[in-house]
Design a binder for these strands. Structure first.
Lengths: 209, 209, 209, 209
DNA sequence: AATGAATGAGTGTTCATTCAT
DNA sequence: CATGAATGAACACTCATTCAT
């Protein structure tokens, strides 16, 4: 029953572990200081290894950056995939908003890394945007259009609906510092924000009588 | 009849002109590459002057950065100031959204500069956030609460309403590259986005019968 | 029988060697041009290494400077420590003068480095002056006072005696160029100077009958 | 009886005044920081004029430096000129020491400027040293030799006697910071030092019976 | 798999000096 | 006489990357 081990492993155990450590460290650093603002030294220190050793795994700074981005993007799209065309639209969208909001709360660094890329013109993930991401958005927009066609929700531009949801949910990760400056450092604002956003969207989508 | 010339000018003509040129160039560069990603050389080149000459006006890179931020922040808050407590709430808010959206369309670089500061923890404008900005947000929230108390709009958390509007409108400046990757480069999406956002918000604010 | 090698060396062989090379080069350069007049490039070139490599060992120019000073100060105070309270005063002092003179002859660069620091207000070694150096001078003055009290030497201010000896001996290192301009480049003036100084001091210290 | 004014003045009143102001400022700055450690800006500021204006009077930094040195050297040699061959030797030398000491006390900056030049190899006044200064020293040495020949003072190397006097007196200007670190900041040590030095020298010069 | 050592190409900043007025 | 503006050349220091072991 056990998977047969290949004779020549492409990756040793320690390699896989170290790459994970590096990518975690890199996410911390890159999300906090941006690409140019981060140094390989910083990442190496946070990863608890020497700079040359780090570069043994990822030969250039750019490689580390792209690897982190790639890993991040994968999990980033996950919630969007879950829209069920046959589900109840408002419930489906509420579920989606909750999933997005959970990402912002639980993984704000990934959100900020992503936002930083966008802000600077997406030099590393331009292909991703016009490729897989566009496909996914188009698919999702199609589902929404079906709902509209069936009269299940009000007629609204599905693309801008998606963008609005993204914007509102990611805001609490990306502009966290601003939110905290206004609402106070320890306030539990994620729950309130979620309620407000879901209500705004659901009210906006209710079919007109 | 001639305007009397002040004997001691604090700034010469050429000084004012050059400072303006520098700040424009700096906005371009900083908004595109972030603080650390920008070099004084880049700014100088775009400003059409030598690096030492640029530093003759602003002694350190940081000074340029703060000057641009300051100039930007001033205009950034402008639309928020306009909420009229005695106006018709839904119309007032629609007007506000349009003003915000216009800023995103007409001055996306300022928006990205600001977003970049937030993303990196607002090292340069922390005081501004917890100071003038918080005051302004609190004032605005108070107006909205009044409207709610009078039953003019539905009961909704005013702070998260404000954040949502900010998020949705700024998104089209900050994530411009992503929007364009999905909707196409030359699509005139600002108008559609505005319509969608206004509708979402207005529907969400309509008082329950 | 073999000496056990310590597992964790704090300094590698090459590190110790290079630091020595750097400090030698730095003494040459700093003593010739002063702190501000010396460039890291100069020191690196004289040390036979690249500037970044030099800064790999001493992170800032100031670190190099302080390291040289510290190393120099240690050997600088050595002769003063040798005054034996129970020795014959005139012989003790003659020995001291000879030791000081030898330092000026054999290590004039250290003397000039030190003199330069003094001239500019001792920004880097102010603490040393009012700390260890003052203690040592006070101790020495006390010995001299004992000799005076016992009637072994004439009553003279011990502090100014010490300063005078320092001044006369160091002069041949610090003002070397002037001495050579007057006495000729290759004249062996150190020996004559020593004789003269010892005689002046000894005659001045002979107890009055 | 009045000196006729030349029609075309080589120097206007204001020119002479400003040059004096500049040289005073330059002495302050150069003596404190050395040549390379001083900036034209610093001198201009202390002189209360703009940098270009300062450079209107002295075209290059080096010109200012040389002018200060020259002015300083003139007054520096003054006391040495005063040795009267026919005076009483011990009294003459005591007078000389007092004059030298007065210079150290009243014009320590000039002393330090001069010392700094020597320390760094006298790049600007090498000619002066082997020229006028050597002549003066030789002359003075000749007078001393005459005294020795007449049996008025003990046989001692006149050159090293001169150097010793210079060293001891200048020490209190050049190493002022060190002296103050040991003797205390406000102690009036110049008088004591003078007494000590005169006594050392006079005792050393008393003819042997 | 890991690290100490080394370096070329920047990067912000200073400064003497010149230019134009 | 005086000054605001401008710049080339340096200079301290950083950083991604490579080399040797």
């Amino acid at each position: 029953m056990a998977e047969p081990q290949p004779k020549t492993q492409t990756k040793t155990r320690i390699q896989a572990i170290n790459e994970d450590i590096i990518l975690s460290a890199a996410l911390e650093v890159f999300s906090a200081f941006g690409y140019r603002g981060s140094t390989v030294d910083q990442i190496a220190e946070r990863a608890g290894m020497s700079k040359p050793n780090l570069l043994y795994y990822f030969h250039r700074k750019d490689d580390i950056y792209r690897a982190v981005l790639e890993k991040t993007l994968a999990q980033w799209l996950t919630p969007l995939r879950g829209l069920d065309p046959n589900g109840e639209p408002l419930a489906e969208i509420a579920r989606y908003i909750r999933a997005k909001m959970a990402m912002s709360r639980d993984n704000p660094k990934a959100s900020r890394l992503f936002a930083n890329e966008m802000l600077h013109g997406a030099p590393a993930i331009g292909d991703f945007l016009s490729g897989p991401m566009k496909v996914l958005v188009d698919d999702t927009a199609r589902i929404i259009k079906t709902w509209i066609a069936k009269g299940q929700i009000a007629a609204i531009d599905p693309y801008h609906l998606i963008f609005s949801i993204w914007a509102m949910t990611q805001h609490y990760a990306d502009f966290d510092i601003q939110v905290r400056a206004v609402l106070g450092a320890d306030s539990e604002h994620f729950a309130d924000a979620e309620t407000t956003i879901i209500r705004l969207i659901q009210d906006g989508l209710k079919p007109r009588s």
